[in-house]
Computed example of a mutant assay.
Amino acid sequence: MKALKERYLSLDVLRGLTLFLMIIVNTPGSWATIYKPLHHAHWHGFTLTDLVFPTFLFVVGNAMSFSMRKFEALGSAAFLKKVFKRTFLIFLIGFLLYWFPFVKDGHLKPLAETRIFGVLQRIALCYCFASLIIYYWKAKGALIFSIVALVGYHILMYAFGDYTMEGNAAIKTDLWLIGADHMYKGEGFPFDPEGLLSTLPSIVNVIVGYFAGAFLQKNGKNYETIAKLMMAGAVLTFAALGWDLLFPINKKIWTSSYVLLTVGIDLMVIAVLVYVIELLNKKSWTYFFEVLGKNPLFIYILSGIFATILFSVPMGDTSAYGWIAHHVFMSWMGDYFGSLMFALVFAMVLWGIAYFMDKKKIYIKV
Rank of each mutant, 00 (worst) to 15 (best):
M1H: 11
Y8F: 14
D12K: 09
L14E: 02
R15D: 00
G16H: 06
T18Q: 09
F20D: 01
I23W: 09
T27Y: 14
Y35L: 07
A41N: 05
A41I: 10
F58Q: 04
S65A: 14
F66V: 15
A73C: 05
A78I: 15
F88Y: 05
D105A: 05
L108E: 02
K109Q: 09
P110E: 01
A112L: 02
T114E: 03
R115P: 11
I116S: 02
F117R: 03
G118Y: 04
Y135E: 00
A142D: 07
A149E: 14
Y153S: 07
F160Y: 14
M165Y: 00
A170E: 05
T173K: 05
A180Q: 06
A180Y: 01
G186S: 08
F191S: 01
D192L: 08
L200N: 03
L200H: 05
N219Q: 11
K251G: 05
W254A: 08
L261Q: 06
V274S: 09
K294R: 15
I301H: 01
I305S: 00
T308V: 06
P314T: 14
G316E: 10
V328L: 11
S331H: 10
G334S: 05
G338P: 07
S339A: 13
L340M: 03
K361N: 14
I364D: 00
I364H: 02
